[in-house]
Design a protein around this nucleic acid. Sequence first.
DNA 1: TCGATATATTCCGAAAAGTGAATATATCTC
DNA 2: GAGATATATTCACTTTTCGGAATATATCGA
Lengths: 115, 115
Amino acid sequence: MNISPANLFALLSHDTRLRSVMLLMAVDELCVCEFTAVFGAAQPHVSRHLGQLREAGLLRDRRGGQWIYYRLNPELPSWARDILDAVESGMRDQRPFVDDRAFIADSMDRRACGE
Amino acid sequence: MNISPANLFALLSHDTRLRSVMLLMAVDELCVCEFTAVFGAAQPHVSRHLGQLREAGLLRDRRGGQWIYYRLNPELPSWARDILDAVESGMRDQRPFVDDRAFIADSMDRRACGE
DNA sequence: TCGATATATTCCGAAAAGTGAATATATCTC
DNA sequence: GAGATATATTCACTTTTCGGAATATATCGA
């Protein structure tokens, strides 16, 4: 991954992208339709921003059937990882991040119950 | 200060602004002409970007004679301070930040010697 | 193969950000 | 007060980013 610090911040400067990254700090892997459900946003909107994060090397994607799952790139340079960790710990208790995680946790529960 | 996380990242997404903030993590206070000297940039360019950081509440300014000194706002919310600390520690050894600090240290020395 | 679902991409117009040049304002020095 | 220095702002322009709508692509299940 060849990304500059200023570039990383540009990626994090949009709410959709920031919330996506924050979610993936907590949940390991999510498919696009889950992002759209959490954000209440249109699918092309979410897909575009996830695409930008992927192109920059911040996220990796993987196809599983008709779904495409996104996760954090495990090979981020350490300085980028450090910053993301600080972002996560510094804003863990703020909205909308708490709500986003709660939403996902809830839908995971439902999935586990077979609903 | 009423700044959102995404807003903070937008401020840090421009090299001039990022380098300015990084310098002020190390040096406490600098006037505009020192920034222009370090960056080798035009004065209006630097002034504009420092102005954005000030308007957003990230920096404070103070007039001292014909100079205007900028410093980090000491009343940043803790989450913002945490992120800045991580940025600083994560990129301390990278260019151009090392060089920027070296430049400033050098000119401080010269000032101390009365040159 | 056909229809349904999930995702990505393209097109286009609007809004925002960035830049260089010129100019305005404030302060200092003489 | 006049000129010099430091800083901020405005103007005109270019570039980038963003959003919505439409469309393309891929997979699944019957």
